[in-house]
């Protein structure tokens, strides 16, 4: 019951506490680099404004937010062939659900009882 014990996973090992120690060191290095940055800036000037590709910050804040429907458009477009087949299977029709269940049972019966 050693709290620092390492989890052996056959081929490898995993010790979260050692990993956290590494993470802490990484954070300290990051903080050191960060603390070497420029200290002062002038509030109220362009220095303090967000940089949105040189455009003005929009008045309506909601316009800035990228909504969920726009994310992963490229991924979905690239896999369109896969999704066009997969999504219609989820038809919402109770008969389809039952048929899938009965079909899988029949398939397993074939594979386990008859096939070998």
């Amino acid at each position: 019951m050693d709290p620092t014990s390492t989890l052996l996973t056959g081929a490898g090992y995993w010790n979260p506490l050692a990993w956290l120690l590494g993470l802490l060191v990484a954070f300290i290095i990051a903080w050191l680099i960060y603390s070497m940055g420029e200290k002062g800036y002038k509030p109220g000037t362009a220095q303090a404004e967000p940089f949105i590709s040189g455009n003005k910050e929009p008045e309506m804040k909601g316009e800035v937010h990228v909504r969920a429907g726009n994310l992963y458009w490229g991924y979905l477009e690239a896999l369109r062939g896969y999704y066009d087949r997969l999504v219609p299977l989820h038809s919402g029709n109770l008969h389809d659900y039952i048929l899938w269940y009965l079909g899988i049972t029949a398939l397993f019966l074939f594979l386990v009882v008859i096939f070998p």
Binding site: P88, G92, H95
Partner: peptide, 10 residues
């Protein structure tokens, strides 16, 4: 009718 009870899908 089961074909019309399918507001939940996809």
């Amino acid at each position: 009718d089961i074909d019309r009870i399918r507001r939940l899908k996809e």
